[in-house]
Write a protein that binds this DNA or RNA. Structure first.
Lengths: 111, 111
DNA sequence: ACTCAGGTACGATGCAAGACGTACCTGAAG
DNA sequence: CTTCAGGTACGTCTTGCATCGTACCTGAGT
């Protein structure tokens, strides 16, 4: 069972500015395009994205995504899970995930 | 007649990263929300946006928007016109302008 | 020709943010 | 208990970028 996690903002607290600043970074956007393209919305490990950056920097980027309300982070103590907040994002910013998915190298990649 | 202007990228050269970085700034995004909300797509003057920044900085921001492919700048010599590239943006990033328009203070502001 | 407002070019500055090193924590496996 | 991999906290460096000062250009009006 995951311990109580630092959780992102509620649906109606999502701000477009914060979201766009989060998506402005190439690495964070590559994570989001992968998540948006995977319609199974399964939980993923942090290193399943093969980011060419150190793990400290990965921690930073995932934190930004969580604080923007785009993902949930599930803390297992010595491991971490990443899940897209698809319904929340889609209800607050309809069409945004489709834009990201369109940037995915594989058309509809169900990872 | 406007002289030959520095022109933005072609439709198929628009990159999501550049666009999102352009929209990450509050001032530039406020300009874009106004443009997106005005469905008449009329040409506007640069100081019709009442940006609380110096004119040098405005020049910088409008340049970023133009290089991102979001607007056209029409140079009249001692004056400048701003026009949203609605069809181009909408065809390349469908739904993006709707997201911006949703952030406009007045619902559908035809300025 | 002079003035003036709108706009640009160039340089400088200050701050936010990406990146990493070191140290430390956590849980699983031996 | 020890080791090890995954992850975090803190500090630091460095880059990018928003902002502005100064100087200059352009066209309209007087």
């Amino acid at each position: 069972m995951a311990r109580t996690n630092p959780v992102g903002p509620k649906v109606d607290a999502l701000e477009l500015g914060v979201v766009l600043r989060a998506l402005a970074d190439e690495h964070r956007r590559s994570v989001m395009t992968e998540l948006a393209a995977d319609h199974t919305d399964s939980e993923r490990g942090c290193n399943s994205f093969a980011l060419p950056i150190s793990k400290q920097t990965q921690t930073h980027h995932f934190r930004v995504l969580r604080e923007a309300g785009l993902i949930d982070e599930i803390d297992y103590g010595n491991r971490k899970g990443i899940r897209l907040r698809r319904t929340d994002v889609e209800s607050r910013f309809p069409g945004l995930l489709a834009l990201l998915e369109a940037e995915h190298p594989n058309g509809t990649g169900a990872c």
